[in-house]
Simulated scan of single mutants.
Amino acid sequence: MSVFLVALGLVLVIEGLVFAAFPAASRRAAMVILETPEPTLRTVGVIGAALGVGLIWLLRLLS
């Protein structure tokens, strides 16, 4: 559980840094997301989740 909380904290730090460093680009990206069809967002989400699981699996395998 502690690894999960560390990972969640890291996601929040990275996301916060992106919004702080590039607020205009973040706003444009949000607008693009709003205009993107749901099936495309769903596909990108599933691919991202699968890549994340694969990366975690690989890192756990190598350590």
Rank of each mutant, 00 (worst) to 15 (best):
I33C: 08
L58Q: 14
A21E: 15
V53Q: 06
R27Y: 13
L12C: 06
G9N: 02
G52H: 04
A7H: 05
V6L: 02
F22V: 03
E35Y: 11
A30V: 11
L51V: 11
I33A: 05
S26C: 03
S26K: 08
E15R: 14
I33E: 06
R28P: 06
G48C: 08
F4V: 09
F22R: 13
A25Y: 10
A21N: 05
I33S: 04
A29C: 03
M1S: 06
V3D: 09
P39V: 07
F4D: 11
V13A: 02
L8F: 05
E35Q: 12
L5H: 11
G9C: 05
L62E: 04
L58T: 06
G45S: 10
I56V: 12
V53D: 08
A49E: 02
L51P: 01
T43Q: 12
A24T: 13
F22W: 14
V3S: 07
M1P: 00
G16F: 03
P37I: 02
R28W: 11
T40C: 09
V18S: 05
L59G: 08
L59D: 09
F19C: 05
V18Q: 08
F4A: 05
V13S: 01
A20E: 01
S26M: 06
L34M: 11
E15H: 13
A7C: 02
R60D: 03
W57P: 03
S26D: 00
A29S: 12
L55M: 15
M1A: 04
A49Y: 07
V3G: 04
A7Y: 06
L5T: 07
G16M: 15
L61P: 00
G48H: 01
A21T: 08
F19P: 00
G16W: 03
A24E: 11
L41Y: 07
E15A: 14
